[in-house]
Nucleic acid binder design. Structure first.
Lengths: 343, 343
DNA sequence: GTGAAAGCGCTAACAG
DNA sequence: CTGTTAGCGCTTTCAC
């Protein structure tokens, strides 16, 4: 079942390959009659252009690499969806790699993608500094990288898609305070992630403003999984830190925490309210559903895709930062603003 | 930042490109001295082979297409992981497409993948019959397709990776019976999916054997999302069908059902036990955790990858069916076998 | 042990 | 309007 090439058409129609090519590309320099014949023959013989040939010719692979920490939660899938919406219609393919939150695996993935000859890389990093050199080298070698969600420090100038972690975190905390909570715990992720710091800063700022900040209420986790959320709560309980609510860095941590509380018979939100930050379905598939900051993940993906296209078109195009807006969505895991302390 | 090619090395070392190529490929017909020089120069100039050139030469794209119904749940991500474990080291890339359980989108994805010139397709179909012709055509045109999880009917002979839906479903139901449940409801997915029928058959067989089968206890859902699980339970409640347990086709349906029950104040497992079929983390991130049949998703992915490699190597290789073993894992959403009706 | 040349499929100068 | 030719990067005969 051999592939039909432009050559086959050329033989079949007794025309040169260039004419065929022109007809296929809607070049004006071709007799409409001829073009019609070519198109018909192409249809009949089942001609499909071979993208590989073009890739070779133009030095592009039409492959974009995606590096994400994990695909267990729908976070990355949603972003991927947005990326695909932009890139698939343009003939790009997306190669996905997962780093499992391990910077070493992330590094390997980046190398793999470079070997795969991708035209650009979109990445949600798993460690703020560990692979900074690698990013820099790859960019210098000519493969543009665009960051989203978790971005590198100021020493690395890049295009990126972000949300306002600090502000939104503070809104969540304000909300908890508005519903009468005062002992608000914060489950941070590992501090090797920039956003962890940002969200924690938002949290601290508000608690300080209200004179209810207490360092004991902050727990830093080792990882980002459900288990880590659970362990964080355990730690609070072990240390006998009293808390009436939790603001968690992510859905995942929040759910881990919440399930452990539920298993201990704690009532949510009556005894402990829980709020998080994310934008995935996870927030709505648990009971009670989670109050959280919803990020426009699909749009973030599309934005990242647009940014990488810019860079592919012109490597020296200026770096852009796209700040996405987010919504704080109130759900059953916290009291609603108006019905403070009501069932 | 231009790519370093074999030509650059050739100029740099004043050797022919063929010698360079041979040295790089460890061909015996090359002076060890020369080879050493070449390797050093390659390292120094940062030479990376251009896979596109080979793809063109050998008529392969080294791209494998993956078609899945969704990536919201970790199901497909897990399978993807297994696929990647096999294919990435071999230089294959995996292009992912989601059909959103819509056979029309699935069709478009298949066409897209064919245009992308993939060497093979791995698919978890979303409708048993709708695209049967399409699969057949693609295979006839020379692109092998391997199925996993949801497979086509007998009229289409293909390689596939499956689990024993019928048997395992019956084990789940037996378990519910062993824990004292008698009014066991079944939330099926849409009957356009083969496995839905298989699992339902397992369910029916056991209930019939125990003389407790009742058609009213079966609810067929429209889709596969959390919402569908919720609606199924609503339907049962509306029809005032009494039930003391639920066996759901998937985690997703089970969780939708469970959360609705919880929101109605129903105690799980005391009043209603819930069990499902899957193998994703979802079963363990809800409270109570779900008893379910755990499929070895990563292994299933690897197996599918092996099958597609077989077919790529030799299109006419015989179709193989790989039957994977599964584990019934008991969790808090049902009583444990021994402590029947105990907390 | 090494070099020259062809060719994978396609497009784009360059002729005519 | 159409044909000829070169070339993208690489491997692989075929000569030497």
């Amino acid at each position: 079942m051999k592939r039909v090439t432009i050559k086959d058409l050329s033989k079949f129609l007794s025309l040169s390959t260039s004419t065929i090519s022109r007809a296929l590309l809607n070049d004006k320099n071709v007799n409409p009659e001829t073009q019609k014949k070519v198109l018909e023959a192409a249809e009949k013989l089942g001609y499909k252009p071979n993208p590989t040939a073009l890739n070779l010719k133009y030095g592009e692979s039409k492959n974009i690499g995606l590096v994400v920490p994990e695909m267990i939660t729908p976070f990355s899938s949603k972003v991927l969806q947005g990326i695909q919406e932009i890139l698939y219609p343009l003939g790009y393919r997306v190669i996905i790699t997962q780093s499992d939150e391990d910077p070493l695996i992330e590094r390997k993935n980046l190398q793999l993608l470079e070997e795969f000859n991708v035209d650009g890389i979109i990445i949600n990093m798993c460690h703020e500094t560990y692979n900074e050199e690698i990013y820099k080298n790859i960019i210098e070698r000519g493969t543009p990288i665009v960051f989203f969600d978790r971005i590198p420090g100021k020493s690395l100038e890049v295009s990126k898609v972000i949300v306002d972690d600090n502000i939104k975190a503070s809104l969540v905390v304000e909300h908890l305070i508005n519903t009468g909570k005062r002992k608000i715990a914060h489950i941070m992720g590992p501090t090797t992630i920039r956003n962890v710091i940002e969200r924690a800063n938002g949290y601290k700022r508000i608690l300080t403003k209200h004179h209810i900040f207490n360092q004991d209420l902050i727990v830093e986790t080792e990882g980002m999984m459900f288990e880590d959320g659970k362990n964080a709560v355990k730690k609070l309980l072990d240390k006998r830190v009293e808390f009436d609510s939790i603001f968690a860095f992510s859905d995942t941590l929040a759910i881990g925490a919440m399930n452990y509380l539920l298993s201990q018979g704690v009532k949510i939100p009556e005894e402990v309210s829980v709020a998080s930050f994310s934008g995935t379905e996870l927030a709505t598939i648990v009971h009670p559903q989670l109050t959280s900051v919803e990020q426009p993940l699909i749009k973030m993906g599309s934005a990242a895709a647009e940014l990488i296209l810019e860079k592919i078109k012109d490597v020296s195009s200026p770096n852009r930062t796209i700040l996405m807006d987010t919504d704080l969505v109130y759900r059953a895991s916290t009291f609603s603003k108006t019905n403070k302390k009501q069932e």
